[in-house]
């Protein structure tokens, strides 16, 4: 099997890597790029734990081959904090108590981030719709939705 060369931007930095094409983006990000925030849940795109942002859109990295990110831009949770300073979303999740076991959290935050990137003032329903692909077994979603709404309000005030 021939290796392929992929060129991509990850959390703002440009990279060039040679990979075997039968590697999933999930495994590539975790094992080759050290992005441990990307979690494996169901392995079939049904839980959203592996969500990353690809070219501005939330996608499930377990349903993508490494070659699919060639020429693209990826954002993982690691890319949200800037020199130790937390993103507004991360701050809100903490303040609102929207994290219990934390396993769904990276995917949740990135789905929310993708929403706010396109729609900085979402309605309550739009927030719920944006995280409809991210399952949480702990929280019951209420505080997660509240955290995202708080974050969007804080961003609007700045």
């Amino acid at each position: 099997m021939k290796k392929i060369m992929i060129r991509f931007t990850l959390n703002g930095e440009k990279y060039e890597r040679e990979v075997f094409p039968n590697m999933r983006v999930l495994d590539f990000l975790r094992n080759e790029m050290g992005m441990r925030s990307v979690k494996e849940g169901c392995s079939e795109g049904e839980c959203g734990a592996c969500t990353v942002i690809y070219n501005g859109r939330a996608v499930t990295s377990c349903t993508m081959l490494a070659g699919q990110i060639d020429g693209g831009e990826i954002i993982t949770l690691e890319g949200l904090s800037n020199k130790g300073e937390l993103d507004v979303l991360q701050q809100s999740f903490m303040e609102e108590g929207a994290v219990q076991c934390g396993y769904c959290t990276p995917g949740m935050i990135l789905s929310a981030k993708a929403l706010l990137m396109h729609n900085p003032t979402p309605t309550h329903d739009e927030v719920r719709r944006a995280i409809s692909g991210n399952l949480c077994r702990c929280t019951g979603y209420v505080k997660i939705v509240k955290a995202i709404e708080m974050a969007s309000q804080k961003i609007a005030q700045e």
């Binding site: 959203g48 692909g133 991210n134």
Partner: peptide, 9 residues
């Protein structure tokens, strides 16, 4: 269809 993530792909 599915979820926002699946619809994006």
């Amino acid at each position: 269809v599915g979820s926002p993530q699946i619809r994006n792909l």
